[in-house]
Nucleic acid binder design. Structure first.
Lengths: 206, 206, 206, 206
DNA sequence: AATGAATGAGGTTTCATTCAT
DNA sequence: AATGAATGAAACCTCATTCAT
């Protein structure tokens, strides 16, 4: 966390951890409901279960709350994704499993993903970079799985692009829900997007 | 425009048109630089070349400015896209041309597209719906072109999904520019995304 | 009218008269509905049937409108009262008739009287004085009628006070309507107040 | 107080009480000088001895200040009146004492009474009703004292009307001061109005 | 004489942040 | 460490008034 190491005035590490997770939980709820800008610091404090004064013992600015929330979301997505990756299987099977896992996660975390999308630009430049790097890491995880299935006529750039495609198609399920979720169920969506990918990779579905 | 017919107190249609385009131009510049929330109404008025009082002769609330801006962006994208569609060619050639045109537009309007993405949620519900419908219309344009190339083993739902894929891949070029534009040029991006699409459609590139 | 002779920039006397009465009519309607402060000059112009620019050809300030309205109300009350006074009868009969007439007028003009009461303090000092003098004149009319019935043991000061009493009791019927008009009808109100007055004047009711 | 229970964001009851009385004192001074509409919230805050932000910790809207002021005036009048009522005396003596007390209060609070008269219509409907009820209660106090002196040929409606008469005659001393206070002193005014009342009640003055 | 677009001072209200307790 | 009252800059918006046409 760039410049975020010494955000709180409170020394007790464990307490800091506890208060921060209260804060993230409370703020997340509010950001989902009304967005970052329409949520006040007073509301965040209240929803988190402590006073406005206490809130400012653990942050320097309102923006820090957004950073913590966005960071938490990324970490959550990432750890779920890591959990799902299990390279013991055949490459193609792996790819199918990971894509499915990723889409499931995106389905579970639709609202959180929306926050990321709409509020990240409210962060300072360096926080944005930090967050962007996390995103890049996740795309790389997808890319690696794709690489293992890459036919000879496709390059690393293709793997990169296809990973990005899958990445935003996952998010798309959430933020274009009004359109997509009328067309098909999550499983159908996963199946179809997977089959498109496999065709591009010239692999016949299993 | 839902409930936006009588936004201005000024009657002279032509003048309203003129002032509004001044306003859209000024506000767009500011929104690109600092976003909707960090831009004040006074700044909008100043950048548009008139006083705060005059601004409010042409809108009712600050949010109306955002609506006009977003609406203008959609109209611009749409009219450019319509311009590009020319169904005199063979279906596949058509598809290739339209996708290229769409990606070119998205490249030209990266910043505008970013505004749409990040600020639409600040609109009232009914304005959001209005804007969403415009988006749906544009996706439908892509879908129609895809339909003409659809092999027998793919359904209309596939066409819909693929149209959505192309749609967000176009936007992705802009809002994931830091990642993608390091990997390849616009033309490479277009070529690759097009070839993926054609493979899914089981059509050999021309 | 103190300082109100040259209010309008327009020369044509007849036209000035016409526009003013339009203005008074329009403004009166609005003042009754929402009071002076909550009525805008734009609304006054519109309700009067002309533009805001035209309005300002006939007044110098918004306050002038209030002055014209209040002045018109006083004149109306006064002329109706004069109409009713007819000193051909016996003094006591006269008194009874005038009091009844006055109360009837106050009943007819309840809303107008409310405007006078609540908005006069928004006038400039000199306009207030001008209006106050008109009121004094009307009280004097009542006083004169009372004087003709005054027993020996009451003085001119008593006549003055009793005239003032009648004056505000007439207004009271309007501005305390929620209390009084539940207790009795206008006629009952007049009868009772009259009989109280006659008792004070030691005259037996006719 | 209808809907006025949770007006302040501050929890400390005692502090709320203190700040409110500061606010009422400051606002009252300004309202006397220039009326509610011409007084700004910033001026109220300053005159009350705190910042604009603090003012809004204790109210929701500017109108709330007016409500508190008007409410305080009514309470003050009422408590002074209650203090004066002492039913240990004979009914007529009581009446004379209460009327005198009431007129004295109205004399002491001329400016406050003017505020009530001129600004109550700026309150929301429900606050107006609340205030009107307080007024009704006070009139009832007068009515009860009158009832004890009521001759057989007068009804309860007469008592009600006479109570209203006294009520507005008290106010009249203040808001028609320019006329009345040139005619006689407060004591003369009280004596005369009292004697008129007693004649109506067919009681010989003591 | 009439119009109505333009102006901008100034109003009310919000809310991130501080700091004494 | 926790509290919450206090702060005031700054936001949005209104509206009386002017003036070019």
């Amino acid at each position: 966390m760039p410049g975020h190491e010494r955000l709180s005035v409170v020394k007790d590490r464990e307490l800091v951890e506890k208060r921060r997770s209260q804060m993230i939980k409370g703020a997340m709820k509010l950001f989902k409901e009304k967005g970052f800008h329409k949520t006040t610091t007073r509301e965040i404090a209240k929803e988190s279960g402590f006073s406005i004064g206490t809130l400012y013992e653990y942050i320097r600015q309102k923006e820090d709350v957004l950073f913590f929330v966005v960071d938490a979301i990324y970490n959550q997505v990432r750890s779920k994704l890591e959990e799902a990756i299990d390279l013991q299987h055949a490459p193609v099977e792996n790819l199918i499993r990971v894509v499915k896992a990723y889409f499931d996660i995106m389905n579970d975390m639709q609202e959180e993903v929306l926050i990321m999308y709409q509020e990240v630009k409210s962060l300072q430049k360096d926080s944005q970079d930090y967050v962007l790097q996390k995103e890049r890491d996740m795309v790389d995880m997808l890319k690696n799985v794709i690489m293992d299935c890459l036919p000879e006529n496709l390059s690393m750039t293709d793997a990169e692009l296809l990973a990005n495609n899958i990445f935003v198609q996952g998010q798309m399920w959430g933020f274009r829900r009004w359109i997509l979720q009328k067309q098909c169920t999550l499983n159908e969506y996963v199946d179809r997007q997977t089959s498109y990918l496999l065709r591009v990779l010239q692999v016949s579905p299993i």
